[in-house]
Design a protein around this nucleic acid. Structure first.
Lengths: 257, 257
DNA sequence: AACATCGTTCCGCTGAGCGGAACAAAGATG
DNA sequence: CATCTTTGTTCCGCTCAGCGGAACGATGTT
């Protein structure tokens, strides 16, 4: 899978570029050569060549080198392709096909859940939930998941503003009980709900992270509850987490750190 | 000044990266090799090595290559250093020292001018205008310049909302006359004012553009009017335009296009 | 089954680029 | 003011990194 041996020069370029960060964004040739272990002539030639194409900009006054506009331009292009919905759509289609269930993508807006993308499963059964639909945050896998990753003050505001209305027999309407469920969700990294909002429906949700490590959306698999038995659920959990991870990665999320 | 001959490989990398844009962000190896004129093996090796360091990301499904997250990260760093005030400060200090006058940097907020940075000249005379000060857009070099580059509807809103109050004998209070002045400013690329707001003060302002080519601020030289005679003014104009151009460039502005 | 086209790999030859040392310019030091 | 130090920059002959044409395996098309 991985390559044999990267081009030496690319490794060197990578090593140089690694030096630039938010704290220190300008370096002298000698500094760079020392930190990277490269010879001064190599460092000089590399930087100058990169400057020729706008990757590097030399400060005329200090003679030090910094990152050039080209990285900003290319960064903007990458950013444009990091659009949540666009990125998610592909992965959602794939997931829906694999599990043969409906997949939805939801975000939080004004302390409510909003569905922003949906891919129907091939099954004859269709889920009512539509793109644009707004619902409370305390019931359903997707909603609970989003709520779980909200800061405590926000959760508090949510309880105060909307309360915990009951939709079915299984809706969690007790604050204590809900908070326990939320911390379990955070621990497990996914949320499960069975008939919390609608009779006969079950759902599994996993968090989507952006490049800053913030939860920006929930990815959810919804279907008839008889498809979510313990055995099948284990498979679904693996799949939904992989899919959510894939989206997160494409948004620039780095799991380690 | 410019280098002798850039490293071949850097040129090749630049040629490959040039292909990626907002319209087409994924390319196959063969496509890239054809478009760039590079051999397929070189293209492959380069892309793979770059992928190793996150500069390039291969889509597992389509096998095509796209820009990697590394460009986004580096782009974010560049962006952070493109902060208007930080960039401007250096250039302003330099300009102030050269001309021995006060230099201010202003932006528009809610149809008013706000001064966001100031560097005093060494002269004993100090200009009252302080960072944070808000003033009308129709009087003074800086204000007129910002007004000049506003879209017509916005200018209209400004006249309606604030009118054209008189500050001195020289304040322009006639709409027609002001619009004529504004189009001259756009043509010349700088604005001059003598005693329009304060007796005995004169100022010269030039526009600062961002990477999209939009005017985001005005750079202004202020001093006693007797320092702004025709001869001295010509020198000042050259200096302030060069300084504003330098800031614009650091913000990613490309004059040609 | 034959074909077309994709991404990927191989390997021997060779010139691009390495690096140590010299150089110029600008501060820092006594 | 001369001397020392530390920048960034340039030079040039030797050498091995990497070039590229051709082969390969996988996929999709006719």
């Amino acid at each position: 899978m991985s390559a044999k041996q990267p081009l030496l020069i690319i490794e060197r370029i990578a090593r140089i570029l690694q030096l630039f960060n938010f704290e220190k964004h300008e370096w002298g040739i000698t500094e760079i050569a020392q930190k990277t272990g490269l010879s001064k002539s190599v460092t000089y030639r590399l930087l100058h060549s990169m400057e020729e194409y706008g990757f590097i900009k030399q400060n005329n006054a200090t003679k030090k080198y910094g990152l050039g506009m080209r990285f900003f331009e290319l960064g903007q292009i990458v950013k444009a392709n990091m659009d949540l919905r666009t990125v998610a759509k592909e992965v959602m289609t794939e997931l829906s096909r694999k599990c043969n269930q409906t997949v939805i993508l939801c975000i939080i807006d004004h302390l409510q859940q909003v569905c922003i993308e949906k891919v129907d499963g091939l099954s004859i059964i269709r889920i009512a939930s539509e793109v644009g639909a707004r619902i409370h945050l305390h019931a359903g896998a997707s909603a609970k998941l989003l709520l779980a990753y909200l800061p405590p003050e926000e959760r508090e505001r949510c309880y105060r503003e909307f309360g915990l209305p009951r939709f079915t027999k299984k809706t969690i309407t007790d604050r204590e009980q809900l908070e326990t469920e939320l911390s379990r969700i955070r621990e497990q990294g996914y949320a499960l709900s069975v008939e919390e909002r609608d009779i006969n429906l079950a759902a599994l949700a996993a968090p989507v992270f952006d490049y800053r490590g913030e939860v920006v959306a929930s990815l959810t698999l919804i279907g008839p509850k008889w498809d979510f038995g313990p055995g099948q659920a284990r498979v679904y959990i693996k799949e939904i987490r992989a899919a959510a991870g894939e989206i997160s990665e494409r948004l620039g999320y780095k799991r380690e750190k």
